[in-house]
Design a protein around this nucleic acid. Structure first.
Lengths: 208, 208, 208, 208
DNA sequence: CATGAATGAGTGTTCATTCAT
DNA sequence: CATGAATGAACACTCATTCAT
C-alpha cells in the first residue's frame, strides 16, 4: 500500500479484473487487456500479484468481502425472523443488481479449479452459514420454527435458495432461466418475487 | 490401431473430454491434452469431430441425454406428489454421484466461456421445467398444493433447490460447502438429506 | 505397369494430380484430396510414388512430354520459316486452350524449389531450344534471317514470347493480364493475335 | 532486446520473409521459420503484422515499390525511343541481379496460392503497362514506330519480353533455362544480351 | 522502479505419411 | 497386397510472463 500505485489505481485494477474474470471466466480473461483497461502496465500488475491466479484470488477475496457485508448488515438489526429474511432477500436483490460483477465472479470460483481461491470462498460461506444458523437457532428457541428440521441442513437449503436468487439477478444464464420460468417481466417484479420466496421459506420452516 | 477406433476408444475419448471440459471449462481444456489422456492422436479426434466445438457439443449432448433420462424415469411412475419428489431427489443424488462429470459439464455451460451456452443448457432446463410443471399441476389439481403461490415462481424455487442439490454432490466447490454447512459426514447420509429436503419442500408447498 | 493399378487408374490419378498441383500449387494441393478425387486409396499412391514430390515430378514429366509433342509435330513438316512459326503459334494457342492444366503445371515448376523436377523440365526446354535453333539456322542459311543476331539469344527471345503466349491462354493471372493489355475480348481473337505476333517476330528477325 | 525492434531488425525480418515467400511461396513459407531465421520471436511478428497475410502484404508492397522505382526512373529521362528501351533493359538487368528476391516474390504472386494475387500483382502490371504505352505512344507520334501493329498487342509482346528478361536473371529455373539456351557464361554478358534484345525489339517495331 | 515490447510455450488444426487390417 | 484410418510433426497464432530500458 506504500508502493507507487495509488489505492485508486488498485481499485480500478481490481474492478476491471472482476468484470473481466466474471464475464469471460478465468481462462477467457486476458491480463494484458485488463492492464490496458485499467490504464496500467502489465509489469506493475506482476509486481503486486505473483501471477494470474493471484490476481484472480484477490478479486475473489474482495468480492466475497463485499458479500460478507450484506450478511453482516442484516444480522445487526435485531428483529423478527420474518423481517430478517425479508431484509436478506431485499439486500440480495439490490446487491445483485448494483454489483452483479461480484456475484458473477463468485460464480466463476465454483467452476475454476484453482486451489487457492476456494479457501477464501469457504471462509465467507462459513460466515453465511453461521449467520443463518444463528438466526434459525434463535427462531427455534422462540418457537416459531418447527423442530423436526436439522438446523444445518435447513441453513443449507436456505442458503441454496439465496445463492440461486442472487445468481438469477446477476448472471446472464440464470437471468434467462429466471425469465423462462417466470415470464419476461419477472425482473421488474422484485417485490412479488420477494413476497413469494418468503411465503415459500416461511411455510417450509414454520411451526404449523 | 490403424483400423477404426473401437467403441471403447471413442467412449474413452468422450469420457476424458467430459472430464476435461467439466474441470477446466471449454477454454481451459486442451484438445492435445485430451488426445494424450485418451491415448489417441490429435488427428483422429478431428476425423470424428469437426473441431473443438463439435467435440464439446458431443460431450454436452451425451450429458444431456443422461440428465434427460433421470426426469423421464421419474414421471413414468404415476404416484403421489410426495413419492414423485422423493424419487426425483433420490435419482439426482444417485446420478450426481455416479456421473458427477455430467453435472460438472452442465455447470461449465452455465458459466460464460462455453460456446452456445443458451441453446445447449436451456434444453436441460426445458426438460426439468416441464417435468416440474407437470408434477405440480397434477398436485394442484389434487388439492394437495396451496393455491396462494405463483406456480411459476414455485417451480423456479423448486428447481433452484434441485440444481443446488446435484451440484452439491458433483462439484468440488459445492461439495466442500455442503460439508461445511452440514458436517464432514453429510455425504454419507443421503437418506437423511433426502428426508429433510422433502420435509422442507412439502411444507413449503402443501396446503395446511 | 504390371501392378494392380490399371493404366486407366494411373492416368486418372495423374490427371487429377496435374489439375490439383496446377491450380493450387505444390503446397496447396493435398495428396488425400487427390486420392479421393481419383477414386484411389492414399496408400496405393505411396506404393507408386515415393512421396508427394515424386508424384509432382511425374506430373511434371508427363506434362512436359505433352508439350514436347507439340514441338515435334511442327518441326516435322518441312515448310517455310513463316509457316513454321504460324504453325507453332497456332498449336500453342490450341494446346493451351484444350489442356491448360499442363501449362499451369509447367508454370508451377518454375516456382517450386523442388530440386528434382528441374532436370526434367530442362530436358524439354532443351528440345524446344534445339528445335528453334534448327529452324533459325536453316532460315539463316536461306538468307531470310538477318545475320547480326546471336542465334541462341534469338531462340531464347523467341521462346520467351512463346512461353508467355501459352501462359496467357492457360493461367488465370496471365489471362487477366492479357485482357488488361488487349481488351476483354482478346481471347476471342486468336487469329488476330497470331497474325500480330507473327508480324512482330518476323520483323524482328528478317533481313530487311 | 525488450525494447522496440530496431529498424535493422525489421528490415532483417522483411528481408528474410521476402526470401522465404519468394522461394517457397505463400503456403510453403512458415512464419515460425521466418521468425527463427530473423532471430526474432514468433510473437513479435504478430505485434507488427496482424497475420501471415499482412506480413506477406508488406513484403509485396515493398517489392512493388522497388519495381515502381525502376519504371519511374526510366521515363524521367526524356530521350529517344531507343535509349528508353536500352535504359529499361539495363535497369531490369541490374534490378533483377541486385534484388532477385523481389522478382521471385512477384513471380510467386502470379502463380496461384498467394492471397489476393489479382489486386497485388496487377498494380505492378499497371505501372509497367502505362510506362510502355507512354513510351510507345510518343514513339509513334515521332513516326519511328510502324503503324500496322495493334498498339495494345505490341505493348503486350514487349512486356512479355521484359518479364521473361527479369525472371531469367532472378528465378533459378529461368536462370538455368537462360544458360541452356545461351551458354553457361550468358549471365556474364549483360551488355551483349541488352544489345541483342534491343536489336530484336527495335526491328520488330520500327518503320522500315 | 515502472514500463510495455519481446518472448516462447502452448493452442487448435492440418495433412503427408504409415501400417494394422 | 490394397486400404484408408490413425499418426504426429508442423502449422498459424495467442497470451501469461519476463526483463532491457
Amino acid at each position: 500500500m506504500l508502493k507507487p500505485l495509488t489505492q485508486k489505481q488498485i481499485d480500478k485494477l481490481i474492478s476491471v479484473a472482476i468484470d473481466a474474470f466474471g464475464e469471460k471466466g478465468y481462462n477467457g480473461a486476458s491480463i494484458n487487456k485488463i492492464a490496458k483497461d485499467a490504464h496500467l502496465s502489465v509489469g506493475v500488475i506482476y509486481k503486486y500479484y505473483e501471477d494470474k491466479e493471484a490476481l484472480f484470488g484477490e478479486c475473489v477475496k474482495l468480492s466475497l468481502e463485499y458479500l460478507e457485508e450484506i450478511f453482516a448488515d442484516i444480522t445487526k438489526n435485531d428483529v423478527t425472523l420474518e423481517s430478517m429474511i425479508e431484509d436478506l432477500i431485499l439486500h440480495l436483490q439490490e446487491a445483485a443488481r448494483t454489483h452483479p460483477e461480484y456475484f458473477r465472479l463468485y460464480h466463476q470460483i465454483i467452476v475454476s479449479g484453482s486451489p487457492h481461491p476456494d479457501k477464501i470462498a469457504h471462509q465467507i460461506e462459513g460466515h453465511a452459514a453461521s449467520a443463518y444458523s444463528r438466526i434459525l437457532a434463535e427462531a427455534k428457541d422462540a418457537g416459531v420454527v418447527r423442530d423436526d428440521l436439522d438446523p444445518q441442513l435447513f441453513a443449507f437449503f436456505f442458503d441454496n435458495l439465496m445463492m440461486m436468487l442472487h445468481f438469477s439477478y446477476a448472471c446472464d444464464y440464470y437471468k434467462d432461466r429466471f425469465r423462462e420460468y417466470c415470464g419476461d417481466d419477472i425482473m421488474d417484479k422484485d417485490e412479488h418475487v420477494r413476497e413469494q420466496l418468503m411465503k415459500f421459506i416461511l411455510a417450509a420452516i414454520s411451526t404449523r
